[in-house]
Design a protein around this nucleic acid. Structure first.
Length: 423
DNA sequence: TCTCCGATTAGAC
DNA sequence: CTAACGGTCTAATCGGAGA
């Protein structure tokens, strides 16, 4: 006897960032809207109207601007505090439908609905409840594996007749084959641009082609990841539900600058602000770092300007999570790499060799430094209580010439009383 | 020749 | 008038260095 088929649902929010904005701006329900990435650089979320006008995912905003003006497309800067808050509400609601849940990204969640009676009715209930309680539209795809649940979700999104829910498990063998034969391989989770081209070159065009491909050949040409994907398409689960978020093995804080930066003090200011962000995240997961890396970048799109992208790392003798300690190293690395006569467009800090607090290798001769400084505790509490940036590490905030461009940001509707619309 | 490790690649969202 | 192009993270694989 074989194990019963898993009823795994993937719940995905539609046009998530745009939908979040519309919750607080119902007047935008029918206007084409896009949300831009940091620095108002690229389009990262599009309403259906914007998609219909031909705006591409990831397209640079300056390329869209003319089209936007002629068609009245509204562009908004991204408001991550708002999206994170809305996301938490959606995930909370989903947790009521099953004890087994994996929050896969800010707008996606796997929910194990195995054993749920009235699966179809419950799926529609998920949609309705999330919509009623948060105002966010979602689609539900159900399958025996993560990869097939993802594909089912894609079908639910694409076909209006599905009304936002699609259950792959309800199909017969023949229906499955027919359906997968109509979907391009590029839609499969884990098959991006490069692999699509390589697969097509081998005659693999549709999802069904991939599912049926000769496994050893596939394996030798594309590696284990592709083999797992194939097995998942065949209905064998190779990826399990990650119910608990694991600690990051690497933490990066970086940003493109609002304008080119030439001077070292401005660069140092940006870097110490990245250190603050990265270390706060590090302490938030109760970890310590033993490797600090700083990188700088000139503007890679300016072929006419000299390019310089240095990157320097230093291993620490003692693991730490202290922003002040990390900041001293980061400042030294920055100074080492800095060359005048370049226009810097981006910088960042990377923490790696991350271990759990209190588990680090101690130095033979040095007395162990306290693993949690009262100062950092106090700093984190103040910044959590009164908002990020309330208390800063010295050197951070003196020169703001690097700050990113955000000219189109909506108010903090859900996280700041002042952002509430007056009634 | 083998193993280790850092760099590179590919993907997701 | 010109220039305007995101941020984080993981895992697998590659290729060179050193044993």
């Amino acid at each position: 006897m074989s194990a019963p088929v898993q009823q795994l649902a993937l719940v995905d929010c539609n046009n998530f960032y745009v939908s979040c904005e519309r919750v607080f701006r119902p007047d935008l329900r029918h206007t084409p809207v896009v949300v831009l990435s940091n620095n108002d650089g690229c389009v990262v979320s599009r309403s259906n109207e914007a998609k219909a006008l031909g705006v591409k995912m990831g397209q640079p905003w300056f390329e869209v601007q003319a089209l936007a003006e002629t068609h009245g497309i509204l562009a908004l800067s991204s408001n991550y505090a708002l999206y994170a808050d809305m996301s938490n509400r959606v995930m909370q609601i989903l947790s009521d439908f099953s004890p087994r849940q994996e929050v896969y990204s800010i707008d996606e969640c796997f929910v194990d609905l195995s054993g749920t009676p009235q699966l179809k009715a419950v799926s529609y209930q998920i949609r309705e409840r999330v919509s009623a309680w948060t105002g966010i539209p979602v689609c539900v795809g159900i399958g025996p594996t993560k990869t097939l649940a993802k594909l089912a979700n894609h079908i639910a999104k694409k076909h209006p007749r599905s009304l936002g829910v699609f259950n792959y498990n309800a199909l017969t063998q023949a229906q499955q084959e027919r359906l997968l034969g109509q979907i391009e391989v590029s839609e499969v989770w884990g098959v991006g641009r490069r692999l699509t081209a390589q697969l097509q070159a081998q005659g693999v065009q549709t999802v069904q082609d991939l599912r049926m491909a000769h496994t050893p050949t596939l394996r030798s040409a594309f590696g284990v990841v592709m083999e797992k994907t194939q097995r998942e398409l065949q209905g064998t689960a190779c990826m399990d539900l990650q119910e608990a978020a694991s600690a990051k093995k690497q933490i990066i804080a970086s940003r493109s600058f609002g304008q080119p930066v030439k001077d070292l003090p401005v660069l140092q200011d940006a870097v110490s602000s990245f250190v603050a962000t990265a270390c706060a995240k590090l302490r938030g997961q109760d970890s310590q770092t033993a490797m600090i890396q700083v990188f700088l970048h000139t503007n890679r799109f300016r072929k006419d300007q000299p390019q310089y992208s240095p990157c320097l790392a230093v291993p620490l003798p003692q693991a730490t999570s202290d922003s002040l300690v990390v900041n001293r190293w980061a400042a030294a690395l920055t100074e080492r790499m800095y060359r005048p006569d370049y226009l810097y467009k981006k910088a960042g800090v990377m923490l790696s060799c991350i271990t759990a607090r209190g588990l680090q290798q101690t130095d033979w001769l040095e007395p162990a430094a306290p693993t949690q400084t009262p100062l950092m505790n106090a700093l984190d509490h103040l910044n959590q209580r009164y908002g990020r940036g309330t208390v800063k590490v010295s050197g951070q905030g003196a020169y703001s010439a690097w700050q990113m461009k955000q000219e189109r940001k909506s108010p903090h509707y859900t996280t700041d009383w002042a952002g509430l619309p007056c009634v």
